[in-house]
Simulated scan of single mutants.
Amino acid sequence: MYSVKMALLDAAFRKGIDGREVFPWIRNLDIRFEPPKQAIVNNSFIKIQTEPKDKKAGPAFISSVGFREYVFFDGELAIAIQTKELTEQLVFLLKELLLHLHYLGKRGSFLQATNQEVRQELGESFSSYLGEPASFSECVVMQYLDDMGPKATFESISSFDDASAKMGRDRVMKTVFIPYQQKRASRDFTWYSREKG
């Protein structure tokens, strides 16, 4: 949820809209996901360049090893956003901003919009939060996903401000149930599917 909201703020800036104006209603959006039918997560150790602890002496970057998970999706990732609390004008702006999303997160997970539609109900193929009444599919994967807290300020989430985000206030972790079942796993990969059997 956090990365979608940050991407919406980025899209607003690229459209010439001040992010401070749209931040309050973007922060409060209720976002759910319908994962693709299949997903394979590859576990990889890769060589990366990092800044040294002592930045004054030596090279600007040093070679290191980092753990990365790369996900291959088979199908489409659907993002559902609750618009009941938004005015008609804000819904129109949200639809525009969503068309300008080309990545989520800072590691370059690229995406492309295919269509937009209005639904009255989401069904069991979408994610749900712990503690809310929901109809689950037969299998779910529990995951902790970060979101913006209701008291978060624009300054606290901005990379260009000195204020730092506090966990529990500006960034909150939510327990999310994703309608996946683990089909197979090894040290190198995990295969998830929404299909039964």
Rank of each mutant, 00 (worst) to 15 (best):
Y2K: 15
K5E: 10
K5V: 08
K5P: 06
L8V: 08
L8T: 05
L9S: 04
L9G: 01
D10T: 08
A11L: 08
F13S: 11
R14K: 15
K15P: 02
R20N: 13
E21T: 12
V22G: 05
V22S: 07
P24C: 11
W25K: 08
R27D: 06
N28W: 00
L29A: 07
L29C: 07
L29D: 06
L29Q: 08
D30E: 12
R32M: 05
E34A: 12
A39F: 00
I40L: 14
I40T: 15
V41P: 01
N43R: 15
N43M: 13
S44K: 15
S44A: 14
I46D: 13
I48H: 01
P52K: 04
K53S: 13
D54W: 04
G58E: 06
P59F: 07
P59I: 07
F61R: 15
V65Y: 14
F67R: 13
R68L: 14
E69T: 13
V71R: 14
F72W: 04
F72K: 15
F72H: 13
D74G: 06
D74M: 06
L77V: 12
A78S: 14
E88F: 04
Q89N: 08
Q89E: 15
L93D: 08
L99G: 15
L101G: 04
L101F: 04
L104W: 03
G105F: 03
L111A: 09
Q116Y: 11
E117D: 09
R119Q: 11
Q120P: 00
E121K: 14
L122I: 07
L122P: 11
E124P: 13
F126T: 03
F126E: 02
P133S: 02
A134Q: 02
A134G: 02
V140N: 02
V140G: 01
L145Y: 02
M148V: 08
G149W: 01
P150E: 12
T153W: 00
T153E: 12
F154A: 15
F154C: 08
F154I: 14
S156C: 09
S159F: 00
F160G: 00
A163L: 11
S164Q: 12
M167A: 10
R171N: 09
V172L: 04
K174M: 07
V176I: 14
I178N: 00
P179M: 04
Q182N: 06
R184C: 02
A185W: 15
R187T: 11
T190F: 04
W191S: 03
K196Y: 07
